[in-house]
Amino acid sequence: MKKLDETTIEKKLLQLPEWDYFDNAIHAEFEFENFKDCFSAMSRIAFECEALDHHPDWSNVYNVLKISLSTHDANGVTEKDFDLARAIEHIVEPED
């Protein structure tokens, strides 16, 4: 998978307002009502990660989930990271 340049990354991030680009990765932080809701989202995200064969660097403290995405094989952000970011957005902020 080809590493994306910074201009392309910033343009793609316009469609993902919760995400930022820094330290060679895209990052987001999501806050939930409680730990149970956060952990539930993490479980659903884990299934999507397995389906896409792409796994985030993430951390959880109580009701806050922090996620960083980059493609280690490409040493930067690729389309694979944006595919997973869009899937995560759909999980944590479902459309009505």
Rank of each mutant, 00 (worst) to 15 (best):
A85E: 02
D57P: 00
N60T: 02
L13H: 04
E18Y: 03
E50C: 09
R86H: 10
T7G: 01
E50N: 12
R44C: 08
K36L: 01
I26T: 02
K12Q: 09
K2M: 12
N75W: 05
F39G: 01
M1R: 07
E79H: 09
H27Y: 08
D20P: 06
P56R: 05
A85Y: 02
S68I: 07
I91T: 01
Y62I: 09
N60H: 00
D53P: 01
Y21M: 03
A51K: 15
S40Q: 15
V92R: 06
T8A: 09
S43R: 15
D23H: 05
N24W: 07
E95W: 12
T71V: 13
D96E: 14
A28F: 12
A87R: 15
N63H: 04
E18H: 08
S70W: 15
K11D: 14
L13W: 09
E6K: 14
F22Y: 11
F35Q: 11
D81K: 01
A87K: 14
H27V: 13
L16R: 05
A51D: 11
D73W: 10
V64C: 05
L4F: 03
T71W: 10
C49L: 05
Q15V: 07
H72R: 09
T7W: 07
T71Q: 09
K2E: 14
A46K: 08
K66L: 11
L4I: 03
M42H: 07
A46W: 00
V92K: 01
E89R: 02
K3L: 03
K66C: 12
F82M: 02
A25K: 13
E95R: 15
S68Y: 09
K3R: 12
K2Y: 06
V61C: 08
D5T: 08
N34A: 04
L14P: 07
P56T: 11
F39R: 10
K12M: 11
A28N: 08
C38G: 02
L84S: 13
A87V: 11
R44I: 08
L69I: 06
K3N: 00
W58K: 05
L52E: 10
C38K: 07
N75K: 11
L14W: 03
N60P: 02
K66R: 14
V92A: 00
Y62K: 07
D5W: 03
I9M: 02
F39L: 13
T8F: 10
I91L: 02
K66Y: 11
L4W: 03
T8R: 02
D23W: 01
D96I: 15
N24F: 12
Q15I: 03
F32H: 10
D73I: 15
D73K: 11
F30K: 01
E6I: 15
L4Q: 03
E93L: 10
E10L: 13
S68L: 00
N63C: 06
K36A: 09
F30A: 00
H72G: 10
D37S: 08
K12Y: 06
H72A: 09
D53L: 06
A41C: 06
H27P: 05
A51G: 10
F32L: 07
Y62F: 13
E29I: 15
S70T: 15
E79F: 05
E50L: 08
D83R: 13
K66S: 14
H54R: 13
A25F: 06
